[in-house]
Write a protein that binds this DNA or RNA. Structure first.
Lengths: 184, 184
DNA sequence: CACTTCATTATACAATATGTGTAAACTTTC
DNA sequence: GAAAGTTTACACATATTGTATAATGAAGTG
């Protein structure tokens, strides 16, 4: 999996042959198939690994904070840290989902969960009267999804970025949608 | 090219074989190679076509408006219309650039130009004192690039979206970065 | 009309990739 | 040491990209 990760980052998907992966890992191509079933299976495993390393579970944790404004801040932060955990790899993986319908399922499933999290939080914000006026709840969800997406993080963060700096920028933008002014 | 476009949207990149493209277009595979040189060449042509159909030149036009605030508004609008012109196709094309270093060049070149446009406009905004305090010019450029990226548009717009509605949302967000309050 | 030029076709070929099958060698476990 | 499960080496089928070549056909020009 580590071999696959490195090759995927360096060569891209098209340049990633299971022959190379197997060689780099010091095993046979057949062994790779025994473990992962297919190239797609391998990618799935790599994706799961990066999600785990990036501590995805922190997203759910952040969303459960009782103060909804604080929850937004933490959710944005957890997202940034997740995306920063392996940027080059995520770029390939997320891109792949847009390119190949077969591969899409993995990412789509996680995005669905991310959306459910935000949708729930937006309902709480709405109940607390913290949504800016003239803004539908669904719109707010879409905006927050977009702001906390990998694509946005990737464009906002310079190569040597500190996730915290990006987080500050995102919160500033989110303030146009949600009233976060009570907090730093 | 139209065959390629349809197949790319329907099947994704991995499912797009030049055999299928040729058959759908009613020619031989060899003819496709005579015209486009390679699969990449074909994609390039398809990308150029969608950029032309989406009227990319309007971006440059918008950036030249003398009032910098008005220029921002128009540039955001032109971006939305560009991205809306063939969403399903752009999803594949933009994703592909993130997946495959070979393919990246096409998109990267356009992004570079888009960035130059924004960078110039941000300098004008800065000179007019319209940047929100505590914000570096490079940060502003990155934020505006992110807000007007295809990825953001694609996440913000519902399936049946009106580009103008998305544009309004984006301007609201951009207002956290640039003072646009003088305008509607 | 005959001639030339050019693109298209049919066909074959090489190279590379994915995925499967099988028997032999090797490890692990009991 | 024997049984069970992996890994290997090797062969094979299939699909795809890309190139080469001779034959075919459709222009336009004299």
């Amino acid at each position: 999996m580590e071999s696959a990760r490195q090759l995927l980052v360096r060569q891209g998907f098209h340049g990633l042959s299971l022959e190379d992966v197997a060689r780099a890992a010091g095993v046979t191509r057949k062994t790779v198939y025994n473990h992962f079933g297919s190239k797609l299976g391998l990618l799935n495993a790599v994706f799961d690994a990066v999600a785990a390393r990036g501590e995805v579970w922190r997203l759910a944790e952040a969303a459960e904070v009782s103060d909804p404004r604080e929850a937004v801040v933490r959710l944005v932060g957890a997202s940034c840290r997740l995306w920063a955990s392996d940027r080059a790899l995520l770029r390939r993986l997320v891109g792949l989902a847009a390119v190949d319908p077969e591969t899409a399922s993995v990412v789509v499933e996680r995005e669905r969960r991310r959306e459910a999290t935000w949708a729930h939080l937006v309902r709480r914000l709405e109940a607390a009267g913290l949504l800016r006026p003239g803004l539908a709840a669904e719109e707010a969800v879409r905006v927050l999804m977009a702001l906390t997406s990998f694509a946005t993080y990737d464009m906002l963060a310079p190569a040597d970025a500190d996730p915290a700096a990006v987080m500050a920028l995102l919160l500033r933008l989110a303030d146009g949608i949600v009233d976060l002014s009570g907090r730093g």
